[in-house]
Design a protein around this nucleic acid. Structure first.
Lengths: 345, 345
DNA sequence: ATTAGCACTCTCAGGTTGAGAGTGCTAAAA
DNA sequence: TTTTAGCACTCTCAACCTGAGAGTGCTAAT
């Protein structure tokens, strides 16, 4: 159907995308030739623009306005024309240094990652906590609180921690609880939820109750987006001229608040996307009505098949794709390194 | 300075606030008499309005518009005129039932609380995780991961869990670690960070390293807004007509993103406010420039001196105060009950 | 103390206008 | 065949004007 673009057409499309990204205005043929001192006349550009418009890469907001890239136009640009702009070295160092300083804990890293993404891309950032595909038992701890109430702390392979308050049918001493925990730790080491449900340990009632709670927590953890989702820079999006009308912004940002919709969106990157690959969703791709005006850049980080999370950026469709993709990739790399260094297995 | 308001003036102020809250428009003398079929004429109302305007409770956007309540007007309304509207019983039951169902964990409760607040008030909601004033040691667990890396899980009195990955100088077996943890558990039971730093247990190097990490984590936990902050309904604010201009909305919502500013705001409720008291900040109170157009309703929940958190709502200054204050109080009550039921000490 | 009446003020929506930007087409030039 | 200059045409946008409408403040009468 679509014929190949000539080199000149590619160049023009590229320039139009750049100029429009910079000014947020439709770009006209004359502006183009002046801005970039092109060796061809505006009339020639108009002819080429007509072609690109017919091919669906450009569109005119109204009869006598300049051209604006369509979703298709952006898609072509991202796949064929956008060039990765490597972040300047001092910037990279500054960021890496921040991560080094925030060496405290996972929570701090993820929050920092979201903050860096948001600042660098001037858009909204999304970071999910890393998550194991294969949920397995690592360690259990039972802590007596008062009467028959017990705080259960469950550590999973990968380092995820889940807690629950159990009300036992009978009171138990801390010694009893510790013994029970030790027994279960032996029994379940490295087991999956299914394996646990299959083994029949003939435990006394409180033991069975604890084991069932362990199994439930592990099953909960298997659900995809169970953990924390870190957002930052949401107000950056409001600053973009395309969202001067609040209604537009509202629909886009509401997606970030509805956890299940957001999870749905993030799961896009999980299916068929290896670590290191960056996925660019432009204009909702027909699926997300709320994102008609937006683009989302997502990638995964972590260690494949062990501990992975998703991270990305949501901004207006008019976005500096080259720079943003690089930034997303860079931050994902940093987080992957951190996960690798601190992997718990 | 200010003379007392007559009953009729109070009534009128009250009606103006209600009408303005409903329509988001300045209210005129004629509208008022028609809307509420008052037994006085519009001219009389105009005279009273002049008085109220001179007293600083009302203001005219321009010469020939109706009146709008000023910050002072809202403040007077909230302190003297607003009546608590108790949530209808079926509504209360529905909400309580939701909490009952989400019995899983603290995380779920807090998220639900934020969601309920946001939905009921049609504004942005803020909920912080409960936090101990007096941070004290409850239980430590050391879990061997690989080589000299150790996952440290620290449970504080109150149930807060903190985790950290330690790199020991020498590798240690799980038995060694368990023994060390047991020793420290005995040593530190119910201690504060200061007490821990004072005791000199003559532990071997890895033990000292762990103890120092425990102390650090406890000190971190003492910082006020250390835990998770749950937000919901941020996009509700965007729907309000006063934020049709994105710039306004941006400045207000940016406050919610900047953790330290938000913490600062929340700390307002901590100083000199007992549990059960609801604090209403109208128009930034001269302190928060970003909130010039907004009101914030905050309260504390939990058990005084033991485990308390903050929760509240941020919305436009034009807000149904009676209803919203009741809702905030109601949700705080629910959370307080949950904390009491599941207190860990 | 209250009210009817009225002149006055200000906003807002609708309509008009002219400048400016950008296009498409055509005919000539390369 | 491709490129370009020239030009008529279209459309937006800001500025301006205008009249309707809403609401006020004042005054004089009740």
């Amino acid at each position: 159907m679509k014929t190949e673009l000539t080199e000149r057409q590619k160049l023009l499309l590229s320039l139009i995308v750049h100029e429009h990204t910079r000014t947020a205005q439709p770009v006209g043929s004359k502006t183009l030739v002046e801005q970039f001192t092109l060796p061809i006349s505006s009339a020639t550009i108009r002819n080429e623009m007509t072609v690109l418009t017919e091919m669906g890469y450009l569109r005119q907001p109204h009869t006598s306005a300049g051209r604006v890239p369509t979703e298709e136009g952006y898609r072509f640009f991202v796949s064929n024309l956008a060039q990765q702009t490597i972040l300047p070295a001092p910037m990279r160092n500054t960021i890496a240094h921040q991560f080094y300083q925030a060496r405290e804990d996972l929570d701090g890293w993820l929050r920092l990652a979201a903050s860096v993404l948001a600042t660098q891309s001037q858009a909204a950032s999304i970071v999910t906590a890393p998550h194991t595909e294969r949920v397995a038992f690592k360690h259990l701890e039972l802590i007596s609180t008062r009467a028959a109430q017990v705080l259960m702390v469950l550590v999973l392979v990968g380092g995820e921690i889940r807690q629950q308050i159990l009300s036992l049918n009978d009171a138990a001493t801390q010694e009893d609880l510790s013994a029970l925990a030790a027994r279960i730790n032996d029994l379940c080491a490295n087991c999956s939820a299914e394996q646990i449900s299959r083994l029949d340990p003939q435990l006394d009632p409180p033991g069975a109750q604890v084991l069932e709670a362990v199994r439930q927590q592990m099953q909960l953890s298997q659900k995809l987006v169970t953990g924390e989702i870190y957002l930052d820079g949401v107000t950056n999006v409001l600053a973009e001229p395309e969202f001067a009308d609040t209604e537009q912004a509202r629909s886009a940002l509401s997606l970030l608040e509805e956890r299940n919709k957001l999870a749905d969106l993030l799961s896009r990157t999980i299916l068929g996307n290896e670590i290191g690959g960056v996925q660019v969703l432009i204009g909702g791709e027909g699926t997300w009505e709320e994102l008609r005006q937006c683009s989302v850049i997502l990638t995964r980080y972590g260690i494949a098949d062990q501990l992975t999370g998703t991270l990305g950026v949501l901004g207006p469709m008019r976005m500096p794709y080259g720079r943003t993709i690089s930034t997303v990739r860079f931050v994902a790399g940093l987080l992957s390194d951190l996960v690798a260094e601190n992997l718990i297995d």
